[in-house]
Design a protein around this nucleic acid. Structure first.
Length: 1006
RNA sequence: GGCCGAGUGGCGAAACAGGCAGACGCACAGGACUUAAAAUCCUGUGUCCCGAUAGGGACGUGCGGGUUCGAACCCCGCCUCGGCUACCA
């Protein structure tokens, strides 16, 4: 088996079997003998593809891996086999297939390794890529390896930097209405910065003022903001890289420190990123996750008056009525954002985020100390502390008051960290009666609760809070309005009075795009320095022609230990330069995040060697978007959102012709470790050892024990999850609090009882039965190399597809691998004579004889089912169909070549090595990779008679066999004539007869 | 807490649009081949009941209701597990 696999892998390599030349669409090779046109499977591509997309092309893409030192994981081949089957199948349908592979190779692990050992990350990366490539090749995937690249290749990151320059050169015109290359008219466009209108007052201040103004509007911009600085990793992290207040990688603590950072204005594309999801063939759950992540909400901005005295409030109000809603709230205004402007009459206090700029102004002298203390504490708190709901809310009164613009009422202004500076305006109006969080806060601090909405408009409400929509009460002239009507009306009333306006907000934040590490793409940006070497804040870009900006060689990879980037330790020759006009320049020393390289790699695969453009527009038009994209759900939000963002910018700037990069997305389910049984023991260590030593006798000795404090097995049902002092998850006995020790049990010590598994010798003890995520710590990781070594690549491929549906989470089972390996053995013996002395040759049962009708029926049934299942990615059932075929044909002594050959073709996408070998033995000189996929003929599926179930009142009572062409009357008569049915019908009347052609007949009787 | 998904034999699963529940595989049991074992092949296998056998019956897709001639599938309520998210006003 191993010999066969190596042979064919070498063959495919030597013959470049899977190389595809994209600019030669009409390529015709002798082996590519197609007699029929490809099936037009993607007629629904109009939404994302242009009208002239070539139906005979298919771009099938895997999410490219990060080549970690650990090598391939069994999760990788799951998706890769699925796309390989689709690719091989599509080629046989006469479709030109682009199926590439490459490496997402920038990132922290290689750099961490460099810090520890001094090995250059490029060395580590190259070594890991070598391992991955060897492993992938050993699985026989039909990649076009001539297109391989890594994101770390200078010739690749040259174009990553080029795209960054596009982002830098673009501003978002939210009001621009335009028609793109896809023929769709939309509002909002990324436009060249040179087209940004410059206000007169800015222009009047000179060239540098204009430059600064432009810099503020670019899609790639610098901004000083609190960032998530992780001292352990020595880098700043994106919000998305922080889980529960700790770093996603390594779980290290994260601090908030202010720093000047690069951000990408992804929020400008929030609307389009949400709405343009609709036409994609993506799982609904992923679309929903992206929409939730973008988190668009509609509401209103409202200014509260924070000046002194009723008179000045009146002046302020009338001035506002005159001038309209201002761009900035001004010194006497406090701007809030709310989604419930209909509850304005229920406001009993206001809350500012601790970092809000107006806090100083509003704080009174006697509250100053308390406010300052609180602000300091809030600044220190990690995100985890801030969001710890269990601890309740915190906040302090500033001493200041704000006046409600709708009723002139003065309400106290607080600061509290449950209001986030980064969302909305960083200030809220609090309506405890109708907002859960405000209610919790108000209850805690004894603030009034005023009801202004009731379910039915009846003022008497005894509930503390009502958070749904309803009918307005206690709201002046608005009483009786339903929530939605009220919202619209008060928003326009506020607008008319210059006090508020409709507003949209997003949970999505701009994307923090700089990292302080070495192993990433350098920015093609220079900072201008003044005569004393201090940055002026003005920037210049590297010209496109000087890209790539290469990483400098460095000997020392130790982090700086401060938020200062690694590359600030680079040699001066790299770091400094002088412009032609004499200006001193310093290089941007941050690097791009790992996401950058993976944001556009799918484009480069179509034109990987192009040294004039990131992709040739003609090639882009023909091959994009990706037709099928398969990968893990862990990238559901970040990678896919970032890619879509970049793609849309490139689209707006005319560099790509489609608005979305990935037409169809499928998420493979995670493969878990083998199912494990876990029992729990209480008692000291020696007792645990005695119980679990495996000796049945010692366990039995505990059987009669009624001593509830001694060492003993304990049911999982009596345990509760806890967290111990060190923060580790433990399980304790619910009643006594004793800590239980987990013991992994072998399968034959347990049995099923009811709906749970119990110990065989102590049926009262329920044990856990679960498959866990594979992890080094648990020791349940399956290495694909071992599986390939033992069972062969075809077995691994087949097993991973046979386990269950591609999208499902499924536990590994080595016995299942044996099962599919046995199946492949049966296929082999169906065709090959193993007994032969003269080496391998065809079995004498495989003959050039005519096929019987029965054999043809089995074949065509199999062709039909396998084809349909591949189209719907139902690989598990496709394999079971082929197993049925083999079971049938092994029972036959004559196996016509005309039936066996199509079967080998059906099998080939799944088990290509075996199939190629069999194909050769059947007398074909070259690869089957471009043979025509078999077609089924329904004519062969017709049977002369069939069995139809007969029901009485919906319950199955018998079956009758009728001729295939029998009409309804004949079938009903036959059903009634059946002895069993007849006896049951006796003495009853048939009220109604349900007849489903080909399915069943049902008599409703009384 | 919120959102999404899933619960079917001892196990992984199948049932395509509401119409024969459990295809296919694993495991197990019995048998054949073998000195023996492995490999391979054959037979059986949801649970319970009646029956010597042939055969027949009842129950059965997490739980409780509902719609329907008919529900694993649709609706309502609940339970359990998994994923995502976590004060976004």
């Amino acid at each position: 088996m191993k010999r066969i696999e190596a042979k064919w892998q070498a063959y495919w390599d030597t013959h470049q079997t899977f190389r595809v030349d994209l600019d030669d669409a009409t390529a015709s090779d002798d082996s590519r003998n197609h007699s029929e046109p490809a099936s037009p499977q993607h007629a629904n591509g109009a939404a994302t593809g242009g009208p002239s997309r070539d139906a005979r092309k298919k771009y099938v893409l895997d999410m490219f891996p990060y080549p970690s030192g650990a090598g391939l994981h069994v999760g990788h081949p799951e998706g890769y086999t699925a796309t390989d089957i689709v690719s091989r199948y599509s080629r046989m349908r006469g479709v030109q297939v682009l199926h590439p592979m490459g490496w997402d190779a920038f990132g922290l692990p290689a750099e961490d390794y460099a810090i520890k050992t001094g090995t250059h990350p490029a060395v580590t990366t190259a070594k890991n890529i070598g391992t991955f490539k060897r492993q992938l090749k050993s699985l026989g995937f039909s990649y076009d390896w001539s297109r391989e690249f890594a994101t770390t290749d200078p010739e690749y990151y040259r174009w990553t930097q080029w795209i960054f320059l596009q982002l830098f050169d673009t501003w978002y015109d939210a009001t621009c209405v335009w028609t793109g290359q896809d023929g769709v008219t939309r509002t909002g466009k990324g436009r060249p910065i040179s087209e940004l209108p410059i206000p007169h007052d800015v222009a009047a201040n000179g060239v540098n003022a204009v430059r600064r103004y432009q810099d503020q509007h670019r899609l790639a911009y610098q901004h000083e903001a609190p960032v998530n600085w992780c001292p352990m990793l020595g880098t700043v992290l994106a919000n998305e890289e922080i889980i529960d207040g700790k770093s996603d990688r390594g779980g290290h603590p994260v601090e908030r420190v202010p720093l000047r950072q690069w951000l990408l204005r992804i929020t400008a594309y929030g609307d389009r990123l949400a709405s343009e999801l609709d036409d994609l063939q993506w799982p609904d759950s992923i679309k929903l996750m992206q929409k939730n992540w973008i988190g668009r909400s509609e509401g209103a901005e409202v200014d509260f008056f924070v000046g002194e005295g009723q008179d000045s409030f009146k002046q302020w109000s009338s001035a506002r009525k005159e001038s309209g809603f201002s761009r900035e709230p001004g010194a006497e205004g406090l701007r809030i954002y709310t989604t419930r402007p209909d509850t304005l009459f229920g406001v009993t206090y206001m809350v500012l985020a601790p970092e809000h700029a107006a806090v100083d102004r509003l704080t009174t002298a006697e509250r100053r100390a308390a406010v300052d203390t609180y602000r300091q504490q809030a600044a220190m708190k990690s995100d985890l502390d801030r969001t710890d709901l269990a601890k309740g809310k915190s906040g302090v009164f500033t001493g200041g008051y704000a006046t409600n613009p709708v009723n002139g009422e003065k309400v106290p202004v607080w600061i509290a960290d449950y209001v986030l500076i980064s969302y909305g305006t960083g200030a809220i109006m609090a309506v405890p009666a109708h907002d859960e969080r405000d209610l919790e806060f108000a209850t805690q601090f004894g603030i009034d609760v005023r009801h202004v909405v009731a379910p039915d408009g009846q003022p008497q409400s005894d509930a503390p809070g009502f958070f749904e929509h309803g009918v307005a009460i206690n709201s002046g002239g608005y009483n009786g309005l339903s929530t939605l009507v009220f919202k619209t009306k008060i928003t326009s009333d506020l607008e008319a009075n210059g006090l508020g306006r409709k507003a949209v907000n997003y949970r999505l934040r701009d994307w923090l795009f700089s990292r302080q590490r070495y192993w990433g793409e350098p920015f093609p940006i220079w900072h201008e320095l003044d005569s004393s070497g201090v940055p002026t804040g003005l920037m210049r870009t590297d010209p496109e022609t000087s890209l790539p900006v290469l990483l400098p060689e460095m000997a020392d990879f130790k982090p700086t230990g401060t938020p200062e980037p690694m590359l600030s330790k680079a040699p001066d020759s790299w770091l400094y330069s002088t412009a032609s006009d004499g200006t001193r320049l310093k290089r941007e020393a941050n690097t791009m995040p790992q996401w950058a390289g993976s944001c556009w790699y799918y484009l480069r695969f179509a034109d990987p060697k192009n040294n004039r453009q990131f992709i040739d527009p003609a090639i882009e038009k023909r091959w994009l978007p990706v037709d099928l994209y398969v990968g893990g759900a862990e990238h559901a939000v970040l990678h896919l959102l970032y890619s879509r963002f970049w793609h849309k910018v490139l689209f707006d700037r005319g560099h790509v012709s489609t608005v979305e990069p990935f037409r169809r997305l499928v998420n493979q389910g995670m493969i878990l470790g083998e199912v494990e049984f876990t029992g729990y023991v209480v008692g000291d260590a020696s007792a645990v050892a005695a119980l679990t030593g495996g000796a049945g006798s010692s366990a039995n000795s505990m059987n009669g024990s009624t001593d509830s404090t001694g060492p003993r097995w304990i049911s999982v049902r009596e345990l509760t999850d806890r967290v111990d002092a060190e923060g580790t998850a433990i399980r304790v006995v619910t009643k006594t609090g004793e800590v239980a020790t987990a013991v992994t049990l072998v399968g034959d010590r347990v049995e099923k009882k009811g709906d749970a598994f119990v110990l065989k010798d102590q049926p009262g003890v329920v044990v856990d039965s679960r498959a866990h995520k594979m992890s080094k710590a648990r020791g349940n990781v399956i290495n694909p190399d071992v599986v390939v070594d033992q069972f062969g690549a075809d077995s691994l491929r087949l097993y991973e597809m046979f386990m269950g549906p591609l999208e499902a989470v499924k536990p590994w089972g080595m016995k299942g691998v044996e099962g599919v390996a046995r199946f492949l053995g049966r296929v082999w013996r169906m065709i090959v004579d193993e007994q032969s002395e003269s080496g391998i040759r065809l079995s004498h049962t495989v003959q050039d004889c005519p096929a019987t009708a029965e054999q043809l029926r089995v074949l065509h049934r199999t062709i039909k089912a396998v084809t349909r299942d591949i189209e719907s990615l139902g690989f598990n059932t496709a394999i079971s169909r082929m197993m049925e075929f083999v079971n049938d044909f092994l029972a036959m002594d004559a196996r016509p070549k005309s039936v066996i050959e199509p079967f080998v073709l059906l099998l080939s996408p799944f088990a290509p090595h075996l199939a190629e070998e069999l194909w050769q033995l059947l007398g074909h000189p070259s690869t089957l990779a471009y043979e025509t996929w078999p077609n089924h003929d329904d004519a062969w599926l017709i049977e002369s008679e069939f069995e139809i179930p007969v029901q009485l009142n919906g319950k199955l009572r018998g079956k009758v066999t009728v001729p295939a062409d029998a009409d309804r009357e004949t079938i009903e008569r036959a059903a009634k004539a059946d002895p069993v049915i007849a006896s049951q019908l006796e003495g009853k009347t048939i009220v109604k007869t349900i007849f489903v052609p080909g399915k069943m007949v049902n008599f409703v009787v009384k």
